[in-house]
Amino acid sequence: MSIALQSIKELVQRSVLLEENLKANFNAPNNQRVLDKRWPMSEVQGFVGRTDEGIRNAEDRGALPKPDMNERNNRRKGYTLPQINYMREQFGTHPRRSPTEDDVSIIAVQNFKGGVGKSTCATHLSHYLARQGYRVLLVDCDSQATATRFFGYNPDQDLKESDTLLSYLAGDTQHLRNAVRDTHWEGLKLIPANLHLYAAEYMIAGRAQANSSDQIYSLLRNGLDTVKNDFDVVIIDAPPALGMISLNVLYASNSVIVPMLPSMPDFYSTIQFFTMLEEVLEHFPEDMTYDFVKVLITRKESRTEGTSSQDDISEDAAAFYGDYMMRSIFYKSRAIENASSEARTIFEVNSPKDIGVDSKTFRRGIETVEDVCGEIEGYIRNTWPSEQRRNAGRVANA
């Protein structure tokens, strides 16, 4: 029995119903996702840069509001992200770039092969940096819109073409401000994507043919120039293919993270990625540079469950790529996968039982992501002259 067009249409209709059912289960009413995560004092003092005693003293003297208390046991409920950011404001500990000294860090998470954990990495990194107190913009440039779904959207139903990069890349608008939207994470904004964004591949080429003065690879950079001063870090989830949008992502970025699975086919794909990147950069202006380019091993089995082939490839990659290789590994984790199946990052999960894992599995998942994102945070801060100056001062005073 052949599958005719009518059958495909029926499959689409059934898929839409399934998606609506999943959306009803995992999203808040009215499609307004809420971050109900609360962090305990043991973590908050590290986020804020003050001791438990210092925070409690500030609460006692009225510099901070009294914490929310659990009526059953009269214990603190934990702190929400807006409460943590308010503490940072009062203590002056927001980890922000200097607007006069530091450039915005624009990081492309990119490989020309799908299934390497690109969107998972981009969304976790954006949530991590927002939790740390940075002002973050996540730009979804992939028409599959996986990253956009993490923010509670059904991209092809909830979003119009004008809600994405498409209007700007097509030349219909002169700035990206209208595409930037708030998210349920304070300090984190999103430029979403949907399937229509794929049309930008043809529109960008059409603009170049119509006006030879248009630099087809600089459109996204010019667009980000209209909004980037509002942020410390911009993260770009790039499409898994070399096309017009990918060229724009590479030119708009000043840093690149390259996710790679520890398998031979992915190793070869990463080699091809760098070969194509070399060819592409030769057509960019000579002063085009990156602050850092790092290869990140993703979806590797845990240390106790790792296969010898995965270990061998990871070790070979580290040996040959050297300083271009990230020390941390984005290990495969059932906690991360279970959270992702509900379009959440692990940072949004309050309890291991919420995603059907034990506390040890949950803790390992958190540690994996924090190791990776913390290392990237270090790379970001090392590119800022203000941070370099502060570090030099600390050494001089030691």
Rank of each mutant, 00 (worst) to 15 (best):
S333F: 07
F347S: 01
D358E: 04
S351D: 10
K332N: 12
N350C: 11
E348L: 04
R327M: 09
Y324R: 13
S340Y: 01
F362P: 08
K360M: 04
S359W: 03
D354V: 00
G322Q: 07
I336N: 07
T361R: 00
R344M: 13
A343L: 11
G356W: 09
S359M: 02
N350P: 03
S333I: 10
A343D: 10
G365H: 02
F320S: 05
R327T: 15
I329Q: 00
V349R: 00
P352E: 03
R334M: 13
G365C: 04
E348Q: 14
T345G: 08
E348R: 06
S341N: 15
K360T: 09
Y324D: 07
V357I: 11
R344S: 05
S328Q: 12
N338T: 13
D323I: 03
T361N: 04
V349E: 03
E342A: 15
S328G: 11
K360R: 12
S328I: 05
A335H: 04
F362Y: 14
I366Y: 04
E337R: 12
I336L: 14
E337A: 14
M326C: 14
F347V: 03
P352Q: 04
R327I: 09
G365Y: 00
S359L: 00
I355Y: 01
F347I: 00
R364F: 15
I336W: 08
S333G: 10
F362W: 10
F320T: 10
A319S: 11
S351N: 12
Y321L: 15
E348S: 01
A335K: 03
V357W: 01
I329G: 00
R327K: 15
G322N: 07
N338D: 10
I336V: 15
E342P: 08
K353P: 05
R364Y: 14
V349A: 08
R344E: 08
F347T: 01
E348T: 03
A319Y: 07
G365T: 02
D323K: 14
F362C: 06
T345F: 10
K332W: 08
A335V: 06
R363G: 06
S341C: 09
I366V: 13
I336Y: 04
S333W: 08
